Amino acid sequence: MTALRPEREDLYGGEPFEPPIDEETVALRVPPPPGFVFGGESISASGASTAPPLTGTPAGGRAARRKAARGRHGRHGGHGGHGGGDRGAYGGGPEDPPGSVGRPLSRVEARRRARASRPSAAVVFSRAVGEVFITAGVLMLLFVTYQLWWTNVRAHAQADREASSLQDDWASGKRNPGAFSPGQGFAILHIPKLDVVVPIAEGIDSKKVLDKGMVGHYGEDALKTAMPDAKTGNFGLAGHRNTHGEPFRYINRLQPGDSIVVETQDEYFVYKMASILPVTSPSNVSVLDPVPPDSTFTGPGRYITLTTCTPEFTSKYRMIVWGKMVEERPRSKGKPDALVE
């Protein structure tokens, strides 16, 4: 390793000087290339070292150093030829070679470049169409959310309030059996198999009754049907299958023998499901006759008819469920077995 440590005379004592050996980094100390300047010494090709005036600076005088600085940074000390400014403002662009000095743009060239940077009419049109479709999609999503979720939430709350109010009035004796005005609640429908408990109001008006989550009684004009306490007749009810509380959504799952209970101020009327008509026309009002022709009933009796729209989420057809009364129980005797089980 002595060849890597050239000796030189000590400037003061005239004795040869040898730098101390650092045993930890000795493997890293390789001879520097000829002419290399480091730490104030320049190593020549023969291995002799010289000390330039300034450490880490190019050899030569002040003029040489200035010339080297101009070569590295340009005349004005910036990168790119104009003090590091925006090359595009002087005509420099992607097509110009790196490090070239740009030239100022003429007005024609500036306008041409500005027009080229603007989106075309087709791009603007496609963006506008895309925004319209996105907006329409968001509005449609909000509408579907309102129809399928919010209407149910609101209708359930309204129906629960009406049922509670009805039971409170019965307990206080404020309501008496008799004729009821349109939209007025007078009974509660229970379908235990479907976990349905919903008020029954007079009339089938959408805004006053059905859209509030209640079930409506066909009790007006040509569609007038009997009340539950009538000795014979057909007690007809209508309800939404989808949205607005959808109390009749799953009546297609009822099987013969399933209980349907109507609770009034004084009595419970218990019916057993008898038959179902899956599809019929909305104009088929014969399903509400005292003895419906499409049912299994053969003579006068005390019946109940549930009507709703079908298929789901449409109102094209009607689904009909019929039941026959099997028990009339005063409230004083407690709830019927169908509501206790």
Results as ranks from 00 to 15, higher is better:
A3W: 06
L4I: 07
E7A: 02
Y12P: 02
P16Y: 01
P20K: 13
V26M: 13
P32Q: 11
P32W: 01
P33D: 04
F36A: 09
F36N: 00
V37H: 10
V37E: 11
F38M: 02
G47L: 06
S49G: 14
L54G: 00
L54S: 12
T57I: 07
T57A: 14
G60T: 02
G61E: 06
R66D: 12
R66A: 10
A68R: 12
G80C: 10
G83P: 10
G84Q: 14
G85K: 03
R87K: 13
R87V: 08
Y90N: 02
D96P: 01
L105Q: 09
S106I: 12
R107Y: 07
A110P: 04
S117H: 00
S120D: 05
A122I: 05
V123S: 11
V123F: 12
V123D: 13
F125N: 05
S126W: 00
R127W: 14
V129S: 01
G130Q: 02
V132L: 09
V144M: 12
T145C: 13
W149P: 00
W150I: 09
V153E: 05
A157T: 12
A157E: 10
D160P: 06
D160E: 13
R161G: 08
E162W: 01
A163E: 03
L166T: 05
Q167M: 13
W170I: 00
K174C: 01
K174P: 00
R175S: 03
N176R: 03
N176P: 02
G178R: 07
F180P: 00
S181G: 02
S181D: 05
P182M: 00
F186E: 01
L189Q: 03
H190L: 04
I191V: 04
I191P: 06
P192I: 01
L194T: 06
L194N: 11
V196L: 10
I200T: 06
I200E: 04
E202I: 00
I204N: 02
S206D: 07
S206W: 14
K207C: 04
K208P: 01
V209D: 04
L210N: 08
K212W: 07
D221W: 01
A226K: 02
M227Y: 15
K231A: 15
G233L: 04
G233Y: 14
N234V: 06
N234P: 03
G239M: 01
E246L: 04
P247I: 01
R249M: 03
G257Y: 13
I260Q: 06
V261S: 01
V261R: 07
V261M: 03
Q265F: 00
D266M: 08
D266S: 11
E267N: 10
Y268H: 08
I276M: 13
P278F: 08
P282Q: 09
S283H: 15
V287R: 08
P292A: 03
P292I: 08
P300H: 10
R302S: 09
P311L: 15
E312Y: 13
I320D: 07
G323P: 11
K324C: 08
K333M: 13
G334F: 06
K335Y: 01
L339E: 05
